[in-house]
């Protein structure tokens, strides 16, 4: 529960350090794939950070991702890059705060339904603004940021998110989330404010997604609301989180890696049937891996371990 061991941090940094060398050895095509993978890894991890402990399934990842991208499209050329990123995170966090304040005090179902339509609404609002105020639907993003730089930025973001996730798990807030997830009513009677804890996490998770969207924006050169707020992305992120297992920090990361390869294979071979296959894969995961791959592996480990334990447990039972 309370651990100060630096090992996980060192591990994360070491892996990140090795991955950082990738741009020097891979082709530009492979690098583009790696960027897509890193992006999903960040989004799925951020998603799991909130939806895992709270069990509030967010279907609105693309809203915050899109907000990040749009921030870059609007102010990318007039502000220094770090300020652009900061602004993207702030706007994403602000929107999450409003959404969270309205829905997180209610039962999870209201939150899910609200996030379900949120991307549609934001897309419509941005389209309306662009059509009526700027008088053109699309925008061009011309920034002097190379693929390699995007890769490193995403990797840095993922590293920070992973380290932050480990630190969170060891912190009082992380413990609070476990308690809230265990029994919200009881948690209230021991001084916890569940709504506040959920809100803090939702805002944090959304800021990360907005940052990912901002970092990815220069790849597109052209964006419009339909591209930036495409609900399929939210769906993909949920699949990844579920496949890996959202009750562990590294679950969504694992899911993101596996699914990115699967998406690549599917969209290459069956570009027409992409949605259908996504839907089918998703349904299969819900049936077969309700706790994700990580959950299944843990079950198997627990089962093999329990067998030799059975006898001793029986003895204790007899004695008492």
């Amino acid at each position: 529960m309370i651990s100060r061991s630096p090992l996980p941090y060192i591990g994360i940094l070491a892996i990140a350090g090795m991955v950082a060398l990738l741009p020097f050895i891979v082709s530009s095509f492979q690098l583009a794939f790696a960027i897509g993978l890193l992006n999903f890894a960040v989004l799925a991890t951020a998603w799991g950070l909130f939806s895992g402990p709270t069990r509030y399934i967010s279907l609105a990842s693309v809203v915050f991702f899109g907000i990040g991208s749009y921030t870059v499209a609007v102010v990318g050329e007039v502000m220094p890059w770090p300020a652009v990123l900061a602004l993207a995170a702030l706007i994403g966090g602000g929107v999450a705060l409003v959404v969270g304040l309205a829905t997180l005090r209610l039962a999870g179902i209201y939150f899910v339904i609200f996030t379900f339509g949120l991307s549609e609404m934001v897309r419509q609002l941005v389209t309306w603004y662009e059509v009526n105020v700027t008088l053109s639907v699309g925008r061009y993003v011309f920034l002097d940021i190379s693929q390699t730089q995007i890769f490193w930025q995403l990797l840095a973001l993922l590293t920070v998110v992973m380290i932050g996730a480990v630190a969170l798990q060891r912190s009082r807030l992380g413990f609070a989330l476990r308690v809230i997830g265990g029994d919200e009513t009881m948690a209230r009677h021991f001084g916890l404010n569940p709504t506040f804890a959920k809100l803090a996490l939702f805002v944090g998770s959304s800021m990360i997604m907005a940052l990912a969207g901002a970092i990815m924006a220069p790849r597109w050169t052209y964006i419009d609301p339909a591209i930036a707020f495409n609900i399929t992305l939210s769906f993909q992120v949920v699949i990844m989180g579920l496949l890996g297992g959202m009750h562990r920090i590294y679950g969504p990361l694992l899911g993101a890696i596996l699914m990115t390869f699967l998406f690549e294979a599917l969209s290459d071979r069956f570009p027409q049937a992409f949605s259908l296959l996504l839907g089918v894969v998703f349904i299969l995961i819900v049936y077969l891996l309700p706790n994700g791959i990580v959950g299944r592996v843990e079950e198997l480990i627990a089962r093999t371990r329990r067998k030799p334990d059975n006898t001793s447990a029986g003895l204790i039972g007899e004695r008492s």
Partner: peptide, 22 residues
């Protein structure tokens, strides 16, 4: 049940939409 059914029908949404798109 609420979470599982939400996720399942979310998958269903994409499956049916995928057939229609096809």
């Amino acid at each position: 049940l609420e979470i599982d059914s939400l996720l399942l029908t979310f998958g269903l949404l994409f499956a049916i939409m995928g057939v229609l798109l096809l």
